[in-house]
Each structure stands twice: as structure tokens, then as C-alpha cells.
Amino acid sequence: MSEWIEACAADDIEEEDVIRFDHGGVTLAIYRLENDRFFATGGLCTHENVHLADGLVMGKTIECPKHNGRFDIPTGQAKGAPACINLKTYPVKVEAGRVLVDLA
């Protein structure tokens, strides 16, 4: 069953950037890629507990700010050492300029 939570305004995130969103003990990273495509993944690098929101978005890749762990944003797939475990991804939709994330 879906549990859509409002994370932020779409304009809160610059294009090709990421912000942190905490809700109910869960930390997420909310991304805005080219052409206003929004995505959400787990907010902490799976290698070590570092916030991905401090990292760099390059195309559709997020790079951890600490150790160069990289993940494919749409799929959460780890793209090589030291990131070896995939990120969890969450469905995202934009309604009336607000970004909603399904935490179910």
C-alpha cells in the first residue's frame, strides 16, 4: 500500500542536484536530474554512513562525498568499489510543484 509523503518543493532542488530528506527515522536523498526528472534513494552511502546529499550528481550518477562510491540514481545500482551494495530506491511523483515520495 502506497504511503506518499511530501518531501519538498520541486524548486528546492536545483537541476542535477540532490537534497537530504529525513522522515520517521529514514534518511533519503531526493534528486532532480535533467529535464525535471525526480528520483529518491536511501540517503546514506551503503559503503559507510555518509550522507549522499553532500555528494556530487553527475548525469544520472551520485557520487559519495567521502570515498568516490558511485550509484546509478534511477536504479540505485552500485557502480564499483568501494560501493558494493545497491541503494534502495523509492517511487517519486511531482504534484502541484511538490515532490512526493512513496515510503511504503
Binding site: 559503503h47 559507510e48 567521502k66 570515498h67 568499489a81 568501494p82
Partner: peptide, 13 residues
């Protein structure tokens, strides 16, 4: 290369 990639990761942590 693999040893030092991981060793250096730890050095930064």
C-alpha cells in the same frame, strides 16, 4: 591497486 584502493578508503575514514 586493489589493496591500496581499500587501504586508502580506510585512511580517509
Amino acid at each position: 591497486p586493489t589493496v591500496w584502493r581499500w587501504s586508502h578508503t580506510r585512511h580517509h575514514t
